[in-house]
Write a protein that binds this DNA or RNA. Structure first.
Lengths: 335, 335
DNA sequence: TAGTGTTCTCGAAACGCTTCAACACTCGGA
DNA sequence: TCCGAGTGTTGAAGCGTTTCGAGAACACTA
């Protein structure tokens, strides 16, 4: 292995000088600098990461804590991961992959050994047991998602409330006056996540604000259940001309279910989904997307800002972006 | 940060003793050992990764080089990643995520800075520019896939040749005598990969061995092209009663194409695919699967074995496993 | 009793880097 | 002429481990 001493000897300077050339923390004459740079290139020198970490108390590595359990929507996750790595590299950092199944235990180990400078935690649940730990680590962390007790943490998330509202606004602007909401399976509203509640809250209050009649029902992950829920919505509100769907698994059956009940999309019922863009694109649904890249970039930048001693807003909510597609005709089907 | 010196002081021993308790490289009396262990637990001590890396010349981190470009089949990739992390953790190692787009450059940087002990490289192409580099690094590497010049490297792969043969054998055992092969897009055979050629070679020679008439054609990624290829196969070999498909993108159109040509699956034409198990399961196709977990585990174990100074076989080929499903009826449709 | 092992523990020297305090120069003033 | 203020460079200390050589304590054999 070629060390800083080798470079120094080769360039005829002291090791500390080489270090200063590398870090730029002191002014070095341009002659010396280029002499050192030449030697570095010639010898193929790379600073030893461990030694550097030991001396600086910085590893230049971020931990990315990923949920790799079945059920996560992989295309979005992948775009997320790519964006994190890219952003990190942009700041000369690397990414350590931590699977969520290693739990709080794993985070403690990695933090304790100073392997990473900070944590990026995906898919945080409302009462996540990692949250209290993260709050007390020496390393800062940024969460994607919003735990119940977010105090003292930095969180980034899509503004699901605004997303729900955005759907209503879009439909209202098109003239719809009776809108239904097809939500996630009911268990989702009872536990863990929270984004589901927020989207629905946003939906409801926007409907109120716009003076629009709304009904909401959860839907399970199978065709029968989707059909039942849609039928339920129509029974409650026979004049319903639009539907907001916040349930990826149900998406595929919504159009079919509506057709089975004699309604066409978009002629009789317009549909807006809150879902990853790939899915919406594929089914030609107007949708509010999940901005994976943007979330990832934002979160990574925030984490790095905190590493540099800057203080950051405790909560960053990304504004929803709605893409109009074939499932909402430009005009309302009936008055 | 709590250091080994703190632990030593707390336990009333020398730092070196604590180290020996931790690594087990010298015998320590059981009293001292438990005294030290208590102090470690009490103080919440974790060895500083950087310091350890500096002293031992081992980082206990593996680099996992992933292709995160569009086009890779994510479910398989994910299972792969999970298995690598799990296996690595089993050996007390962590995983650094490296994206393939960082290229040879990135590998050199990471290797040079001694950030990792070894490389696990996915999706290696026939004339991959990283291969010559990997061969000369101080750190060992294991490749998933087989480059043209594999000399001096450790590779792990599914035995695609055997996979092709296995498909033939299965169909032959069911009584089929005229079998077609629907391959990847033709460009795939011209460049890069190699697994495509191997699968087809295995198919052809197995057919020869079993005295079976075979025809092969590539297929592009759209319905029209699949239809054309299938029609071509049937024209060449009107008595064809079985089809081996090695083309994930085409899979979805094969049954439809056959039906459009008046053949039902499996009554008129039996179909065997070489593809990820999820896809086969979903479409109820008899298939030879891509054993992601097994490949990952094997590759990781091999890499770790090499880290421990063991020498390993240059090439490990996993035997194909065929799962019988609805697309091959138990008996041949016609003589 | 002296000699020979064992078993356990310790001190000190690495490992390769950063950074602080200090030194040697040069350059303008006074 | 000397002083003070930069500049540019250096030596050495320190970061937290591991590991080597050696010592202490003890038991066993000759």
């Amino acid at each position: 292995m070629v060390t800083i001493a080798d470079v120094a000897r080769h360039a005829g300077v002291a090791p500390s000088t080489v270090s200063y050339v590398l870090t730029g923390k002191r002014s070095i004459s341009s002659q010396t600098r280029s002499k050192v740079r030449d030697s570095i290139r010639l010898l193929g020198y790379h600073p030893h990461a461990g030694a550097r970490a030991l001396a600086t108390n910085r590893s230049n590595v971020l931990a990315l804590v990923l949920p790799l359990r079945p059920g996560v929507y992989l295309p979005v996750l992948m775009r997320f991961v790519t964006a994190v790595v890219t952003t990190a590299r942009w700041h000369d950092m690397d990414v350590l992959l931590v699977t969520a199944d290693q739990g709080a235990q794993g985070l403690r180990r990695i933090a304790g050994s100073a392997q990473v400078d900070g944590f990026l935690v995906l898919d945080v649940e409302l009462d996540d047991d990692r949250v209290p730990l993260l709050r007390h680590l020496t390393q800062p962390s940024v969460l994607i998602g919003r735990p119940a007790a977010a105090k003292g943490l930095t969180c980034v998330d899509l503004d699901f409330e605004a997303a729900g509202a955005r759907c209503v606004d879009h439909l209202a602007d098109l003239g719809h006056r009776y809108i239904g909401f097809l939500g996630a399976p009911s268990v989702v509203y009872q536990r863990n996540t929270g984004y589901a509640q927020r989207a629905m809250a946003g939906f409801s209050s926007a409907a109120m604000r716009r003076g629009i009649a709304s009904t909401a029902l959860p839907a399970e992950d199978d065709y029968e259940s989707v059909l039942t829920s849609v039928r339920g919505l129509l029974r409650t509100q026979p004049a319903m001309t639009a539907l907001v769907v916040h349930n990826e698994a149900a998406l595929g059956w919504v159009a079919g279910g509506l057709r089975a009940l004699g309604r066409r999309v978009p002629e009789d019922v317009a549909v807006v989904a809150i879902c990853p863009d790939e899915l919406a694109e594929q089914m030609q649904l107007t949708s509010v997307q999940l901005p994976a890249e943007q979330l990832a970039r934002q979160a990574t930048e925030l984490l790095i800002a905190r590493l540099n001693g800057l203080s950051t807003a405790p909560l960053t909510l990304l504004p929803p972006k709605l893409s109009s597609r074939a499932s909402t005709s430009p005009r309302p089907p009936r008055g």
